[in-house]
């Protein structure tokens, strides 16, 4: 199995609900707590497994705002695992999930240096590395109803922009979406083979905008048109 997420950049509205749900679930989960420093102070900071950034693509008027959630990509060629000297970081054979054994980590930060996607954050209080677990403590929990055995971020997304599944199964929803919508991987040139896949925004026509005409004849037509309209 090759478990991972699909994120639909067309529908994501950047509401940060996935980040909050992730924090809520995982802070009491197997790798919790997700320590916060000065949560009510001037410069609140803390551990998150999922962060959303906002970008502008292209230039006005052909521009678009894109909201960009990022968590661990559960890379197939995960250098964060190979550089770890203690063996605390590991990739599971059976489903490809990359995890940190909190009891073995010595907090050297080398795995965070090796990760291109900023997916690993050191817990300053506990001194160990933390990261997205793909909600390993939800997706296999037989006490949960079957349709809830999904990551917290996927369950909560109000725009339905996140999907979870097995990329090794060509008929899974994630494989199908990635095939049909031209799913992309981030920084493929580094060779980490990230599993998480991003669906690009659909190309929609621009909202028409008023153009200042430079052609004198068009200018006169334009002026007449506006006069008539008035």
């Amino acid at each position: 199995m090759k478990l991972g997420l699909v994120v639909d950049l067309d529908t994501c509205v950047g509401c940060n609900a996935c980040a909050v749900a992730c924090k809520q679930w995982n802070t009491s989960g197997t790798t919790g707590p997700l320590t916060d420093l000065e949560p009510y102070g001037k410069d609140p900071t803390g551990v998150w497994f999922n962060r959303i950034r906002n970008y502008e693509l292209g230039d006005y008027p052909d521009n678009k705002t894109v909201h960009f959630p990022m968590s661990c990509m559960h890379c197939e060629d995960a250098a964060c695992v190979t550089v770890c000297p203690t063996g605390a970081s590991y990739k599971r054979e059976e489903d490809g999930i990359v995890l940190v054994d909190q009891d073995k980590c010595m907090g050297c930060n080398l795995c965070a240096w090796a990760c291109p996607y900023g997916a690993r954050e050191l817990d300053p209080e506990e001194g160990v590395m933390k990261k997205c677990t793909l909600c390993v403590d939800r997706i296999y929990d037989e006490a949960l109803p079957e349709d809830e055995r999904q990551p917290a971020c996927v369950m909560t997304c109000p725009a339905h922009a996140r999907f979870f599944g097995d990329f090794d199964d060509p008929n899974s929803e994630v494989s199908r979406l990635s095939r049909e919508r031209g799913g992309e991987h981030l920084m493929p040139e580094l060779g980490y083979k990230p599993v998480n896949t991003y669906l690009p925004p659909r190309n929609k026509p621009n909202i028409p905008t008023y153009k200042n005409e430079t052609n004198p004849i068009e200018k006169v037509k334009d002026w007449v048109n506006r006069l008539v309209a008035r």
Partner: peptide, 27 residues
């Protein structure tokens, strides 16, 4: 390449946090 939008200009509008993070402190 970091955002997969290779055919257009890409500008960061908002990093999504008001104070520093582990990532900004370290890198």
């Amino acid at each position: 390449t970091a955002t997969s939008f290779t055919a257009r200009t890409v500008r960061l509008l908002d990093v999504g946090h008001t104070a520093g993070t582990f990532l900004t402190d370290e890198f």
